[in-house]
C-alpha cells in the first residue's frame, strides 16, 4: 500500500500545483476541496500526512484538525498559511500540528517536511502495532503465568516467587518458560523492555 499525502485546499490551482510537485518527488496524493469532503472519508489508513490550508470556506483548517483528533485520527498534519496568518499558525502548532509552511511554498522545505511527517506517521503506526501485539500476547497467558511474570518483572528469583505463590520452584520454572515463549522474548531484560514500550510498566 502506497503512503498517501492528503491535500485540503479550496483553490484548485494551488491543489493541482501541490499534487504535481509532490508527484514529481515520488509522493502519492489525494486532493480535497473542503474540510467537509475530507470528513466524509471513512478510512484514513492510507493517509500518512495531511497538508491543510489554514483558511478554508466553511470548516477552517484548524477546526478540521480538531475534529479529526476527536475522531482518533492521529495523522501528522502540516498547515499551509498566508503571510498574515502567523497567529493562526501558532495556534495550529499549539493544538498539535507537526509543522507549518508559508505561501508561496519552497519545494525543498515542503518535501522535507512531508517526508518527516510520513516518517513520524510510520513510527506512530509501528508503535501502535507493537502495542497491539503485546496486548495480544498477554491475552494468551494464564492467570498463574501472569502472576509469575509479575514476579519476574519485579526482579524476584524463582525461589522467591515460589514462596510468594506457595508453589514449588520447579513449577515456577515451567510457568516462566511458557511465559517467555508466549511473549516471544529470550531474556528478562527484553520482557521488561517490551512491557515498558507498551506502557504497561514503568521502566
Amino acid at each position: 500500500m502506497q503512503e498517501q499525502v492528503w491535500i485540503v485546499d479550496d483553490d484548485q490551482a494551488v491543489r493541482n500545483s501541490l499534487r504535481m510537485l509532490l508527484k514529481s518527488s515520488g509522493f502519492t496524493t489525494r486532493e480535497f476541496d473542503s474540510a467537509d469532503s475530507l470528513l466524509e472519508e471513512q478510512d484514513f489508513s492510507p493517509c500518512y500526512c495531511l497538508l491543510l490550508d489554514i483558511r478554508l470556506p466553511g470548516i477552517s483548517g484548524l477546526e478540521l484538525h480538531q475534529q479529526l483528533e476527536a475522531r482518533g485520527v492521529q495523522t501528522p498534519a502540516i498547515f499551509i498559511t498566508g503571510h498574515g496568518d502567523i497567529p493562526m499558525a501558532v495556534q495550529a502548532m499549539q493544538q498539535g500540528a507537526v509543522d507549518f509552511l508559508t505561501k508561496p511554498l519552497h519545494d525543498a522545505e515542503l518535501i522535507d517536511k512531508v517526508q518527516a511527517a510520513i516518517a513520524l506517521a510510520r513510527e506512530q503506526r509501528d508503535k501502535r502495532q507493537q502495542e497491539t501485539a503485546v496486548h495480544e500476547s498477554l491475552a494468551t497467558l494464564t492467570d498463574r503465568e501472569r502472576e509469575v511474570m509479575a514476579g519476574i518483572v519485579r526482579g524476584l528469583s524463582n525461589k522467591q516467587i515460589a514462596a510468594e505463590l506457595s508453589i514449588s520452584p520447579r513449577t515456577v520454572e515451567v510457568h516462566r518458560a511458557h511465559t517467555m515463549e508466549k511473549m516471544n522474548v529470550n531474556s528478562v531484560a527484553n520482557l521488561v523492555r517490551l512491557l515498558g514500550e507498551a506502557g504497561l510498566i514503568d521502566e
Binding site: D11, A13, V14, S17, L18, S24, K103, P104, D107
Partner: peptide
C-alpha cells in the same frame, strides 16, 4: 495575489 504565486512556484518546482 499569494494564491496564484503559490501555484506558480509549485508548478515551476514540479517542472
Amino acid at each position: 495575489i499569494n494564491q496564484p504565486l503559490t501555484a506558480i512556484a509549485s508548478f515551476a518546482d514540479a517542472g
